[in-house]
């Protein structure tokens, strides 16, 4: 068996993770169903991306933020950190569950709920209600955005012992505020750089962050996930 990744062992770890979160996942499914029931899709059955996005962001990020509560508790961290699996398996199991797992759970529950709700409304109440179109292209950007934002909350859940969701939001807000305050500097530098014909990124260290946040979300995501992996590997009880 590999010391880094073994499929059988990984399956065992993810099984534990799913069963440990079974109750909260069921509660999330119920919430999605209730929302689909209360806000059915009218007209031509176009997906209500705003509502689905709201559900995915809210529930997904709450789920992610509570995922590492055990690592911060002395009694439960022993069980988690000494489980005979690699740090990569430990990291991947929770990340996959809170990213792709959560997307699948919310989108599929919303889709199935919308079918049930459509049946309910059309047959019993006589309203013109349609299930959502699952393969809508509008859905992809919502999922991609969720995956990116989720990586920040994933890291926040590992770093912050208490109120990790709130702390992560505060950190992001603080960071964006700093960028906002520094933004006049960027514009001056951009003009100056354009005038001199120099590469923008080298001009000011703050430009790196601006660059990352504006255009390179995919840099933030691997960075957050990489740091998360290291934090798990270096967690002590």
């Amino acid at each position: 068996m590999s010391n880094y990744f073994d499929l059988t062992r990984f399956y065992r770890v993810i099984k534990i993770e799913i069963l440990a979160q079974k109750k909260s996942l069921l509660v999330y499914m119920l919430i999605v169903f209730m929302v689909a029931l209360l806000f059915p899709v009218h007209g031509y059955g176009m997906p209500d991306i705003g509502l689905l996005g709201f559900l995915l962001y809210t529930l997904g990020l709450i789920f992610t933020s509570t995922l590492f509560a055990d690592i911060h508790s002395q009694s439960s961290s022993t069980n988690y950190l000494l489980l005979p699996c690699s740090n990569l398996e430990r990291f991947l199991s929770r990340w996959l569950l809170s990213s792709f797992g959560m997307v699948l759970l919310i989108v599929l529950t919303y889709f199935i709920s919308s079918i049930l709700v459509a049946l309910l409304y059309n047959v019993l109440l006589g309203f013109n209600v349609h299930p959502i179109h699952l393969l809508s292209m509008q859905l992809m950007p919502v999922i991609v955005d969720y995956m990116q934002l989720q990586s920040l909350f994933f890291l926040g859940a590992i770093i912050f012992k208490k109120n990790s969701a709130l702390m992560t939001i505060c950190c992001i807000a603080f960071f964006l505020f700093i960028l906002f305050v520094l933004s006049p500097l960027f514009s001056i530098n951009i003009d100056y750089a354009l005038m001199l014909g120099q590469p923008l990124i080298l001009l000011n260290p703050a430009m790196h962050f601006y660059f990352l946040f504006s255009y390179k979300w995919w840099v933030i995501m691997p960075l957050c996930l990489g740091v998360s992996y290291l934090k798990i590997a270096e967690s002590e009880s």
């Binding site: 068996m1 010391n3 073994d6 062992r9 069963l19 440990a20 109750k23 055990d70 508790s73 002395q74 009694s75 439960s76 022993t78 069980n79 950190l81 000494l82 489980l83 005979p84 699996c85 690699s86 740090n87 398996e89 590997a233």
Partner: peptide, 22 residues
């Protein structure tokens, strides 16, 4: 390093025990 090869050969019963829902 908490390698699985070691962890599967070690079991630790701590003083404070976890309250699992299983």
């Amino acid at each position: 390093k908490r390698e699985p090869a070691l962890l599967q050969q070690l079991y630790f019963v701590p003083e404070q025990l976890q309250s699992l829902a299983y």
